[in-house]
């Protein structure tokens, strides 16, 4: 956990703004509506609790793809005689035999496995909701608004971000000057090879491309081509699988095709400058409000920020343009 006081960046937790410039784009409706995950719980005698806690510490807590720190692990059963303990999520342990095997190995005496326990994936954003969720779903700890923790844990290299936003803005302007009617530019930064930034422009008006060659689609292709070209290059230190953990900078808010392409490519973060109120698909208020990067149903996520300062003047596009 990153402590708030250790973070030297200025973060406005209420408005979700970093350094007065980067607005976190997130669908808050998702946060205040519990997203439930299946977990394995067992019914135990109180004296077994120490062993079970040890098991959780050593075998499940750190390995679990679902962070369960916000829930209380133990609650009393209805008759108050035994304790119901959450061992792990069903994403960590997929079937019953696997769970039974682990419990046997750790010599845990349990009365039964309770299969249908569901807990919220993330804690609620307000203290008021804690009581409601604790009664409705499962007892929850109040560790503060989980989004504060998320914001605190993000890393921002403000100099790098400003440099790249400046460069894509300049490139977009020069695209416009040379007659590109879609002056949209994206930059792709490999976390393992930050120096070699890949830039991509929108090519839909270029006769050798097609109308789906938006800057993000082209950037993803360029990353793929670089990886293919370096498949047997032992000195290549860059990422070798998709755009895993890439940061993507783009002049205009992506359309649904591009926003989804970023999910398929497993990028970590997207920072855009100009929102597209009609055709964008990331901001709650843009387009159909898909919020593709934080859409619960799509079950994959990346961080999104909009630069809200006036430093970068990107070319204006017609409102109906998909970027």
């Amino acid at each position: 956990m990153v402590k708030k006081c250790n973070n030297t960046l200025k973060i406005d937790y209420k408005k979700c703004i970093v350094e007065e410039r980067l607005l976190q784009i997130v669908n808050l409706e998702n946060v205040n509506e519990a997203d439930l995950v299946d977990v394995w719980a067992i019914d135990i005698e109180p004296r077994e609790s120490r062993k079970v806690i040890d098991l959780i510490r050593c075998h499940t807590q750190d390995q679990d793809p679902i962070n369960l720190q916000h829930i209380k692990r133990i609650k009393k059963s209805h008759d108050n005689k035994t304790l119901i303990t959450v061992v792990a999520s069903k994403e960590l342990i997929s079937d019953l035999s696997e769970l039974e095997c682990l419990l046997k190995k750790e010599e845990i005496n349990y009365k039964s496995v309770i299969e249908d326990v569901k807990v919220p994936r993330i804690g609620p954003s307000t203290k008021e909701l804690i009581t409601e969720w604790s009664t409705k779903y499962w007892p929850i700890n109040w560790n503060g608004n989980p989004n504060d923790q998320i914001l605190t844990s993000y890393e921002f290299d403000m100099d790098l971000i400003k440099d790249l936003l400046g460069r894509i803005t300049a490139k977009a302007s020069s695209e416009q000057l040379t007659g590109n009617r879609f002056p949209i530019v994206s930059a792709f930064v490999d976390p393992k090879d930050k120096a070699n930034v890949l830039f991509a422009t929108d090519k839909r008006c270029n006769p050798s491309y097609n109308m789906l060659d938006h800057s993000i689609m082209r950037g993803i292709r360029k990353v793929a081509e670089r990886q293919k070209a370096n498949a047997f290059n032992k000195t290549f230190t860059g990422t070798t699988y998709l755009c895993v953990d890439y940061d993507v900078y783009t002049t205009h808010e992506p359309c649904s095709m591009c926003a989804m392409a970023l999910i398929h490519s497993r990028v970590k973060r997207c920072i855009f400058i100009k929102d597209m109120p009609e055709t964008g698909s990331l901001k709650v208020g843009s387009g159909d409000g898909y919020c593709i990067h934080s859409n619960k149903a799509l079950n994959s996520k990346y961080e999104v920020f909009q630069w809200i300062g006036s430093e970068y003047d990107v070319p204006k596009l017609s409102k109906s343009t998909c970027t």
Binding site: N210, L212, M217, I220, R221, V223, A224, Q227, K228, A231, Y241, L242, C243, A261, H264, S265, R266
Partner: peptide, 17 residues
């Protein structure tokens, strides 16, 4: 293609083009 977007439909659009 080492590419998460090389889906069948996009391949067909490209071929068609």
């Amino acid at each position: 293609d080492h590419c998460g977007t090389a889906h069948a439909e996009l391949q067909a659009i490209r071929q068609w083009q």
